[in-house]
Design a protein around this nucleic acid. Structure first.
Lengths: 355, 355
DNA sequence: ATGAAAGCGCTAACAA
DNA sequence: TTGTTAGCGCTTTCAT
């Protein structure tokens, strides 16, 4: 519990500066003031061309003077266009995972940037799928948004499929299955895991471990890619399921890596950069040299990956491009066009945690 | 540019499953179906007590069957309650700073969690203050939100003050000035900088540097705290202005720390954990031992701080508590109560980057 | 170029 | 307990 330091507030003036100033809260108020009709004010404020340029400027000046801006709820109800995109993060497979997952947060930030640039507001909703499985329909069916972006499929693939059959303006970040209905943008996770593992093997790793829980489909695919690459090379992979959700990552990783009990592995594929960072530190504290004795490779290429010591080699997901593509596709879908899914190839970013 | 792998979509069924199924999009539609009035349906769906339990359940079942949910825009317009909190991040002093700043993102995640738990949706808006300085009023004056949370004051202190004089349901994360109008929640940044620096001095540091640009008021205060502590000890502080905004942090830090040109400093106070992380790595690459030759202390205590190598000593800001307090205060303000600002004391988290 | 009038879909006060 | 009625504040035909 945090102690709060209490602080005196300054005096707050709730009374208007001029007592004779009429409050102008509606178009009608402003219309009366300007001596025109509400319709004209509406057109003027919207910058419509069919209104006299002089009256328009007079009205706009008046609106500015009184700090008036039209009520968006009314506007949206009437025009049947909200200018809002819903962003939903389903937290199905791991309830402990909060919205604070750094990868989601980074993608969210990128989405916010792109949506803002396209003139949309962003409504964020942390959905906790329960038995009713209406977490998605709450967003799509409420008339609150023009479109919806889902970040991560969690274990809700089927729910998303069902909604997608009736609701078009939706784009999902995640994994792609051939023939699926919903439009998805994502990284080829299998390929990512494979590339990472092939690289480790090529540089001499033989005792491989995959670090990360496979509850969500994306990390599961990364693991599959790792296993596939190992198999090709006649090797096996030890799976150490570590939950990236909470702040215990460090301890979990320490436990998984045997708490200093010798050099069990010489090649570690981590399910995410965050897990990789923990591994880096734990290995260091165990006195193992990276990358000489153990190589570590992450997944995501979050900005922090370049700032670890040693700088983390990792499988890069194109977060910025991904966000841009999602917004583009969503806009197309809102406009009634149909769009194809996009699976983006991951790329290896080699820094100093691998040979 | 990323290559997109094109993928075939599955067939999409846009026709309803039963062609004789009537579309039910409004309360009135459902009312007709149920043989009651729209008012009753409204009450039933809202779970109001004054409606017959049997009719209520019949109506709810009917609504579920037809996948009907009331239009939120209409509901909100009528009830004059939106259930939405606007979250604004002003990017005044550093345009390059995107919403992807990890501290903001972490606070945002915490806010999302707390707001969701309180039944609010969260509308995110990245504001780029320009000459008109109406970025805030766009949120407060549009009738789109029940309240507004501003994350960071940037260089817009006065703008926020002006709005706060007329708009009550607003809480701001940032710095507190005695007598200010707007309700702020934040950390005592001066004290934080002071604590960090005193600690370094107590453990032997004499050649001090502060790493971070002081464009925003918060980091400026941290710097002041550092200078004050140094002054008390008869020392001076070298200011190395590094921008934490972009991905060049590493290079900037390397340049600031002299690119290996010897041990200029033995105590580094960083403006944020991210900057500290870069410093850690740069110093390591320059062959300096931490904390033996040079001590480093960060600011924020983001989750990653525990995962660096060596684990980062830092000045902790209570992000979770801060978010919770902001939401509490905002709810109180929405309910018409007035609230005091809260300045939270920072605390030193000592890990291994200091002695 | 502007005004009048009809809703957008819902909620809530008032009746019954 | 339910129906009726009157809007919430705006946009948009349709007239003029």
């Amino acid at each position: 519990m945090v102690e709060k330091l209490k602080v005196e507030e300054g005096v707050e003036t709730s009374a208007p500066l001029f007592t004779d100033e009429i409050e102008v809260r509606t178009l009608a108020d402003l219309a009366r003031l300007a001596g025109v009709s509400a319709g004209t004010v509406s057109r003027a404020l919207a910058g419509k061309s069919l209104v006299n340029v002089e009256t328009r400027e007079r009205i706009q000046a008046l609106a500015r003077k009184h700090g008036f801006r039209p009520n968006q709820m009314a506007s949206k109800l009437r025009s049947r266009r909200t200018g809002v995109i819903g962003v939903v993060i389903p937290l199905g497979h791991d309830r402990r995972q909060h919205i604070s997952d750094p990868f989601f947060l980074t993608l969210l930030g990128a989405l916010a940037d792109h949506l803002t640039e396209s003139g949309y507001d962003l409504m964020l909703s942390r959905a906790i799928p329960d038995e009713t499985s209406d977490w998605l329909e709450r967003m799509t069916g409420s008339g609150m948004t023009d479109g919806v972006i889902v970040i991560g499929q969690s274990d809700q693939f089927e729910v998303i499929e069902k909604v997608a059959a009736q609701y078009r303006p939706m784009v999902v970040w995640g994994h792609h299955r051939p023939g699926q209905t919903h439009c998805v943008v994502g990284t080829d996770n299998f390929l990512g895991g494979k590339l990472a593992t092939e690289r480790l093997i090529r540089t001499g790793a033989r005792r491989l471990a995959f670090l990360g829980a496979t509850g969500g489909i994306e990390i599961a695919k990364r693991f599959e890619g790792t296993v596939a690459a190992a198999k090709t090379a006649g090797l096996t992979v030890t799976h150490l399921p570590v939950h990236m959700a909470d702040e215990q990552v460090g301890h979990e990783v320490a436990a998984a890596l045997g708490n200093g009990s010798g050099t069990d592995f010489d090649g570690i594929v981590a399910g995410s950069d965050l897990i990789a960072m923990s591994a880096l530190r734990v290995l260091y504290e165990n006195g193992q040299r990276i990358p000489e004795e153990v190589q570590v490779i992450g997944f995501d290429d979050l900005p922090i990956a370049a700032q670890t010591f040693p700088p983390l080699s990792t499988v890069r997901q194109e977060i910025q491009d991904g966000a841009r593509i999602m917004v583009e596709k969503l806009k197309a879908r809102i406009a009634g066009q149909s769009t194809e899914s996009a699976v983006m190839p991951p790329s290896l970013v080699l820094r100093a945690s691998t040979r």
